[in-house]
Simulated assay, not measured.
Amino acid sequence: MKTNKLLVLGVALLTLVFTNCNSSDETPETYSFNFGNNKTSDFAGKIVDENNQPIAGVTVEMSGQTITTAADGTFTLSNVAVKERFAYMTTSKPGFINGSRMVFPHEGVNNVTIMMLERNVIATIPSGQTSVVSLPSTTRVTFDGAFMLENGQPYNGNVKVSMHFLDSRDPYVFDKMPGNLIGTREDGSISGMETYGMVNVELYGDNDEKLQIATGHTANISMPIATNQLDTAPATIPLWHFDEATGLWKEEGFSRKIGNRYIGNVSHFTWWNNDYAYVVATLNVVVTNFDGTPVNGVRVTISRQNGSTGDVLMNLGTTGPNGTLSAGVPRNEPLTFRAFTADGLLINTQVLPASNEMVRTVYVVIPVANKQ
């Protein structure tokens, strides 16, 4: 608590220093992002529903370790095998869509919040005929009527459709979405992503068996483009589906901009995401008091100046007990860096210049001590 008071007192005098860590000889053409070496990390988290209420009895799994959330929705996992720039956990509970989170682990305890979405059957449609299912957001999916069981056998009967749309402007989008905005492009390279909206669709049969679109068939997805993104929305944009096994999004096809919507075809269902892709670099954030002591719990976001107007690109997370965090950010683009106290108070907004560096660091120094 002393740290939070110190942050508030130091707002007016907060200073931020931006430095590059590697040689400027590195060029985008020779750069290749990787997740680093093996290490172990500690994690603490909380699982909540869409009303921010804790969910007990959620199974949390990470690198072979499994734990169940307590009555207050919390969990801890220690000495988890991860990569230097990749840690992936999954959550599951009957009645909810599976949740997950991918983080860039830092030293000390990594804090994670996952907001799980309820399985919401919004429509029941017949197989064998074209059907359109819509949400109040105007997101809609058109099915041609061909479905199959998970084992590939044809399915004939009623199809229950569960569907959620995540607007890029949703203040909880990074808590609700799976993984993180990191994905694999069709050429195999790792990319960062800026979302223009995503949708989850799950299909169930009469006996709650899981279904998929039949092999060789597609469904059409139409999603609205947020008004603050219309001026930057490209004519075509990559489509990505989330791979629960790897914790990464995978590029598969594209959507076309038609009016104020993105429309594309998909051959299977999971989460689907319309995203601008960018080359990813690592940003390290170090927050200290004037005397060099680390500051815990500072939340950091990044937005692209060349991206959607006023849109927060990524919630990078919060600093750990050692005052640091690491995350993937766009390479060679000017970025707007924002830091917040644990109570949500904005304590700094800073433009970071474009850089070709693979790794760069932001130092936040709070020069006023709260002596007690």
Rank of each mutant, 00 (worst) to 15 (best):
T27Y: 06
T68Q: 14
F86P: 01
D243R: 02
G264D: 12
S127C: 07
G197A: 06
D25I: 14
E84R: 10
G145M: 03
T184G: 01
V11E: 14
A123G: 14
T139S: 11
T195I: 12
R299K: 15
L352T: 13
P353V: 06
M193W: 00
V82L: 08
V312N: 02
M89K: 02
G264L: 04
F35D: 11
L316M: 06
L325D: 03
E118R: 15
H164R: 07
L149R: 06
H268P: 02
M198T: 09
A12H: 10
T68M: 14
F254H: 13
V80N: 05
D170Y: 05
G157L: 06
F33I: 06
K176H: 04
L239G: 00
V368N: 07
N120P: 02
N348G: 14
N151V: 14
S255K: 06
S191C: 12
C21P: 11
S41I: 02
V362D: 01
G45S: 05
M116N: 04
P334T: 05
S137I: 11
E194C: 02
D144E: 03
G57N: 15
G45P: 09
S162Q: 00
G45N: 07
T74I: 04
M62P: 02
A369Q: 15
L203F: 07
P334G: 04
A56I: 06
N322I: 10
C21A: 15
L313P: 02
D311N: 11
N332F: 11
V80P: 04
E26T: 15
V286G: 11
L166Q: 07
S168I: 10
T309L: 12
R140L: 09
M163L: 10
S24V: 10
F254R: 12
M177C: 08
E252A: 13
G292F: 04
S131E: 05
I347N: 00
G216A: 06
F174D: 14
V279A: 10
Q53E: 13
A369G: 11
P238D: 07
G307Q: 08
Y88Q: 07
R85E: 04
S308Q: 14
Q65W: 09
M358P: 09
L135W: 05
H217W: 05
S63L: 05
D187N: 13
V362P: 00
L352V: 13
V362R: 00
M193L: 13
P126Q: 06
D243G: 01
E118W: 02
N110A: 11
V112M: 05
W272G: 00
I182W: 01
G328I: 01
N274L: 04
G128Q: 13
A339F: 04
K371A: 13
N220M: 15
D42P: 03
V285Q: 03
Y196N: 15
M223Q: 12
K93A: 13
V312Y: 01
